[in-house]
């Protein structure tokens, strides 16, 4: 599935061309799941005129890819995610997901935010079943016997899914506030995946977790992705996490208003380490080399989010 590895190098600092990611899969005729065409986002900043957040973004993300958006705070990675989600709209260009332009938030995309990812008034099981129940029937449709049969089957499916996520049966009746942050994110992922969306968007979903929980969730997410291969777009400012999870990496830099024609995309390409089994990735020499390079590229103007490459024996991000 992955083409010959290309080592990340300063050459990639040039704005990525439109098909920066796609060629690696061109021969396999991979379907393009997410497409951004000359996308720009700007907003009025009062007396300072217009502030450009994103400019000239051209990206094509093939189906089944695990794309990681990396960059320092304020570079526009979350804005890019919100464009794909339909929560924001570009001031120029077009965003297409699953073959259709994004006009509003809908069930084409699953979404796991950093926090507030679960409905606090529903139990774990109710949270996970909420989406498929909505998809099946409206308010009146819930009164029919067929809906209740469907609900029984869905319940079994939800329990299986939660068990796969590492939840115990007694956890499923709990409310979100009774769970740890890591458990909540496991449920949030199960909740999103049960809808079987073509695209799963995660916005710094593991940022607030402790290293060991984060590590186990990374492994879990990777194994789920490897099994069913949804298209995943994962926003992070953690280089190790990006290199561990991503098959494709997009590094965004801050846009400068004095260079309106220049894109925010600094690096957009497939990762060579993605070929290695997950557990071995961070032990490879390539990994450490890329880690060092990405730290320099992604966090050029700020050391706030810089991380050390992981120790040889572990992959903790």
């Amino acid at each position: 599935m992955v083409s010959a590895p290309v080592t990340l190098s300063p050459a990639h600092l040039a704005p990525a061309p439109a098909a920066a990611i796609a060629p690696a899969r061109a021969t396999e005729a991979a379907r393009v799941e997410i497409s951004l065409r000359k996308v720009g986002v700007a907003y009025s900043a009062g007396k300072e005129g217009t502030k450009t957040v994103l400019a000239n973004i051209d990206l094509e993300i093939p189906a089944g890819e695990f794309v990681v958006l990396l960059g320092e705070t304020g570079c526009g990675k979350s804005t890019l995610l919100r464009l794909m989600l339909g929560q924001e709209f570009p001031t120029s260009g077009e965003v297409i997901v699953d073959g259709k332009p994004v006009k509003r938030i809908d069930s084409r995309t699953g979404y796991v935010p950093q926090k507030y990812s679960l409905f606090p008034d529903r139990t774990v099981l109710e949270n996970v079943m909420y989406g498929p129940e909505n998809a099946r029937a409206g308010l009146l449709g819930r009164l029919t016997p067929s809906f209740w049969r469907f609900r029984r089957e869905l319940r079994e499916e939800a329990i299986q899914s939660l068990t796969r996520m590492g939840l115990r049966p007694q956890d499923m009746k709990k409310y979100p506030y009774q769970l740890s942050g890591g458990m909540q994110q496991r449920v949030a992922i199960a909740q999103a995946l049960l809808m079987k969306p073509p695209v799963l968007l995660l916005d710094e979903a593991f940022s607030a977790l402790d290293p060991s929980t984060r590590s186990s969730l990374q492994e879990l997410l990777h194994s789920i992705w490897a099994e069913s291969r949804p298209t995943v777009v994962f926003v992070t400012h953690n280089t190790t996490e990006a290199l561990l999870l991503g098959t494709t990496l997009i590094v965004l830099g801050r846009h400068r208003d004095e260079e309106p024609e220049k894109s925010n995309v600094l690096v957009a390409q497939q990762l060579p380490t993605a070929q290695l089994p997950f557990a071995q990735r961070c032990n490879s020499a390539e990994f450490r080399e890329q880690h060092e390079f990405l730290e320099r590229v992604a966090f050029a103007s700020s050391s706030r989010y810089r991380t050390q490459p992981p120790a040889q024996e572990g992959c903790h991000a």
């Binding site: 809908d106 699953g110 990812s117 909420y130 989406g131 909505n134 998809a135």
Partner: peptide
């Protein structure tokens, strides 16, 4: 946002 992605 989450609710809309869950077909609300």
């Amino acid at each position: 946002v989450k609710a809309f992605t869950l077909k609300s």
